[in-house]
């Protein structure tokens, strides 16, 4: 694929942005699996710190990309679309970091009977996040992203069902009401990862549609 020098610089930054989101996601996955498996909180600090480091680096790179988009020549309409997509992408590492901090600071303990469903929920959301990150890169290379966006849409509906089942179970459990609210809040927050992916997917589709002449 032919690339101009300035274009190469932006693409390199975008690849690096993807890398940090990917790393952030990996550390988040390890941390949350350990949280759910009820391991002690203290050894997880390093993983949470890594999530934070990669989230922060992704943030810096996103700002660099935004600066580059303003400084380098690009049709304003495209620039607007890309900035929108970047802003939506930013919600992904933010939500990984947020979840880690919430669970760790509030020292939330997950009931054993919910373990398998919670892990399934995390797994599905992480897959969706990974798919949208890859699609985000494919968008810049003008590859066909529509099938993956449709897959993400379908996964989101599936995740919604798992979320509802989990919340129903939480509120049927014999635990404190506040604990129920906290747990259902965390379940909602995990499920919101796929909502973010869906929003990014929708924006990508709009941008692609606008660019197909």
């Amino acid at each position: 694929m032919f690339l101009w020098k300035k274009e190469r610089q932006i693409i390199d930054k975008i690849e690096s942005y993807r890398h940090h989101i990917h790393e952030c996601r990996n550390y988040f996955l390890q941390a949350i699996q350990k949280f759910i498996s009820q391991e002690t909180f203290d050894p997880l600090e390093e993983l949470i710190q890594n999530v934070h480091v990669h989230e922060s680096k992704a943030d810096d790179i996103r700002r660099d990309i935004e600066q580059m988009l303003y400084n380098k020549a690009l049709v304003p309409e495209s620039r607007e679309d890309i900035l929108y997509i970047l802003e939506s992408m930013d919600a992904l590492p933010n939500s990984f970091e947020d979840l880690c901090f919430q669970i760790s600071l509030q020292r939330i303990e997950f009931p054993k009977q919910l373990k398998s469903e919670l892990l399934l929920l995390v797994d599905k959301n992480i897959i969706t996040a990974e798919k949208i990150t890859a699609t985000f890169i494919d968008f810049f290379y003008r590859k066909n992203i529509l099938p993956v966006v449709t897959e993400i849409d379908n996964s989101e509906s599936e995740i919604d069902k798992i979320e509802r089942t989990l919340i129903r179970k939480i509120f049927m459990m014999d635990i404190e009401k506040t604990e129920k609210l906290i747990l259902s809040g965390i379940v909602g927050k995990i499920s919101s990862i796929s909502d973010i992916a869906q929003t990014i997917g929708d924006r990508l589709v709009i941008a692609v549609t606008k660019r197909r002449f």
């Binding site: 032919f2 101009w4 968008f139 810049f140 003008r142 660019r211 197909r212 002449f213």
Partner: peptide, 17 residues
């Protein structure tokens, strides 16, 4: 022709410009 060009979205914009 433009849709088939083997370039990134930035390249496509550049060519249009």
């Amino acid at each position: 022709l433009f849709n088939k060009l083997p370039v990134t979205i930035f390249g496509q914009d550049k060519i249009i410009q």
